[in-house]
Amino acid sequence: MSKHVVLAFDSIHDVIKAEKIIVRHGIWCDLVPTPRELSSDCGMSIECRNEDLPDLESLRENGALTWRDIYRT
């Protein structure tokens, strides 16, 4: 199983907003150049650990996070 996921967003504004929310919830993340597979989005994306995906999904469900696309490395 892959260890990381990459979350892609519409704009760099949304990326930075999401980064702040993820960090505030004590979840590890890193900003990375958007992988080619996701190139329809903005230049930067957020890499997270696979194991944190359930927590990220619940943040998305309550509207805090708004990624458009997800890619498993």
């Binding site: 519409d10 704009s11 190139s39 903005c42």
Partner: peptide
Amino acid sequence: GTGSRSES
């Protein structure tokens, strides 16, 4: 250019 949707 906006750094977003670069393919479009």
